[in-house]
């Protein structure tokens, strides 16, 4: 039964990359659609549109980071992977904030980005303000990232 520890830990790492990555892919795609609409009418707005489009892409990077830290700590990328099922489940739980919040925040941020593109289309001089709205959503992705990082590092130090 002890050998299942690594299975749960790896599942957690995969979920973090999967959830946050899928959310970002969906979000960047949606923002890209709206961005194409704005650029079709005014190609000079490409640079600003690109920034708004990329905002929901950060969650995918956070997911990758969490997956990478987990893989390093559980010995998949080298080192020892000798731990029990309890520790494996703890790693799994540590990855969940990034997996779930990553997905939800990426999609929500994309919607805010699309709305901000409406501001950009009509009032390009208000670009700074338009960027704030989707950027606010980023806060929660960063909080989830922080908790996942702290939890993974904490779990790795536990002797169970």
């Amino acid at each position: 039964m002890d050998k299942y520890g690594i299975v749960f830990a790896l599942l957690g790492a995969a979920l973090a990359a999967l959830g946050a990555g899928a959310g970002s892919a969906k979000g960047v795609g949606l923002a890209g659609e709206a961005g194409s609409g704005v650029v079709t009418e005014d190609p000079s707005k490409f640079g600003k549109v690109l920034i708004l489009q990329l905002l929901p892409g950060t969650q995918g990077i956070y997911g990758l980071l969490i997956a990478f830290i987990t893989l390093t700590n559980i010995g998949v990328l080298g080192g020892s992977s000798d731990f029990g099922i309890a520790k494996g489940l703890l790693y799994f739980a540590a990855c969940l904030p990034m997996a779930i919040v990553g997905y939800i925040s990426a999609v929500a941020q994309a919607k805010a980005s699309v709305a901000s593109m409406g501001i950009l289309a009509k009032r390009p001089d208000q670009f700074g303000k338009s960027m704030i709205f989707p950027a606010m959503v980023e806060t929660y992705a960063i909080l989830a990232l922080l908790i996942s990082v702290l939890a993974i590092l904490g779990v790795s130090g536990l002797s169970i």
């Binding site: 709206a34 194409s36 699309v114 409406g118």
Partner: peptide, 8 residues
Amino acid sequence: AYAVARIR
């Protein structure tokens, strides 16, 4: 999303 952005 594309259509509404163009409409904007």
